[in-house]
């Protein structure tokens, strides 16, 4: 499939741009040796550390080492995790916890949260959207409209805090945060899933309204099919394309939204790792987390586009890009 090959090529170029950007930015924020050892370190110790880390090599050499390391799954070692009480001059490149390890440790939790949030939001959004289209101007229809408007107007982290205030502080039903039991996921999933719920619900409703007014729906009605069958069997499939598009869009939003929601709920995912690495100025972890999230988003976009070609073969992608 030439389109998909070209599309994948774009993704790889984009990823390379991000990698370059992250590398250069990492060199711009100051000497990592000073960040690691603190302002009180001696010049000799700093020089030793720079040599150990290869910071004295030319930039181009460092860049190629950065990329070859990445290709081998090596994103460097953390400045903070696993690096304690080590005399400065003995700091070796191998003393901290590998970033890859930290990222892989956190990634499943983020996937878990995103999967719960998105799947429950999708089920609810499809149901509400279909019901809203079946009974226009009913209370379900109004609910879908209000939800869609509210979901694009609310800040996710504030919604999370409001949920904590209501369900954890006042009612005491659920914990304020943390991870472990099944009920820990409820509040973060609601905070994260509210936006896709509103937007997918709205798109489902309008796509469904469109489909239900078409001749084939009238034909199905004329031959006596019950309305729920027309909706679920005939119309939903045809309304799928806009729904998939908006879902892919929301999936990308979900990945970045997770950064804030995880911070609010103390959820040990990649977003929290990213934010905490910023406050401790742990550059390798920050770079690793950013690259992971960016790669995830790029892959999600690619998959959505691939799904789109599959669902809608009529669209000529060669003409879309020109």
């Amino acid at each position: 499939m030439p389109y998909l090959v070209r599309r994948a090529g774009h993704s790889i170029i984009l990823l390379l741009v991000v990698v370059t950007f992250v590398f250069l930015a990492g060199r711009m924020i100051g000497d990592p040796a000073i960040v690691m050892l603190g302002p009180s370190a001696t010049d000799a110790a700093l020089e030793q550390l720079r040599n150990n880390l290869g910071l004295n090599d030319p930039l181009l050499v460092q860049y190629f080492r950065f990329i070859t390391d990445l290709l081998q799954g090596d994103m460097g070692v953390s400045f903070r995790y696993g690096f304690s009480q080590m005399p400065a001059d003995q700091f070796m490149e191998t003393s901290g916890t590998p970033v890859m390890e930290l990222v892989l440790e956190r990634l499943p939790q983020t996937f878990y949260l995103a999967a719960v949030a998105l799947s429950s939001a999708l089920v609810l959004a499809l149901t509400l959207g279909c019901l809203g289209a079946m009974w226009p101007r009913s209370w379900v229809d109004n609910l879908v409209n209000v939800l869609s408007l509210a979901s694009v107007s609310v800040v996710q982290f504030w919604l999370g805090l409001m949920l904590i205030l209501l369900f954890a502080v006042h009612l005491g039903w659920l914990p304020t945060g943390g991870y472990g039991e099944w009920y820990h996921v409820i509040l973060p999933a609601i905070a994260l899933g509210a936006r896709p719920l509103g937007r997918v619900g709205q798109v489902t409703r309008s796509a469904m309204l469109d489909e239900l007014s078409r001749p084939y729906a009238a034909a199905a009605r004329a031959k006596g099919l019950p309305e729920h069958r027309i909706v679920s069997v005939h119309a939903l499939k045809n309304a799928g394309i806009p729904i998939v598009t908006i879902t892919g869009d929301e999936l990308v939003q979900l990945v970045t939204g997770a950064i804030l929601v995880e911070t609010v709920f103390g959820w040990p995912g990649i977003g929290q790792l990213l934010v905490s690495s910023m406050s401790t100025r742990d550059l390798p972890v920050l770079q690793g987390a950013i690259l992971t999230v960016a790669a995830l988003v790029i892959v999600v976009n690619l998959v959505v586009d691939a799904t789109y070609t599959y669902l809608n073969p009529r669209v000529s992608f060669s003409s879309r890009s020109s």
């Binding site: 774009h10 170029i13 984009l14 741009v17 991000v18 992250v22 930015a25 711009m28 924020i29 990308v252 990945v255 970045t256 950064i259 990213l274 910023m278 920050l286 950013i290 999230v293 960016a294 988003v297 790029i298 976009n301 890009s321």
Partner: peptide, 18 residues
């Protein structure tokens, strides 16, 4: 096309960090 397929909040965070 390229910039729109990047997560803008994440890039904003990183740039502001720098």
């Amino acid at each position: 096309d390229g910039m729109q397929s990047l997560p803008s909040l994440l890039i904003a965070l990183f740039v502001l960090f720098i």
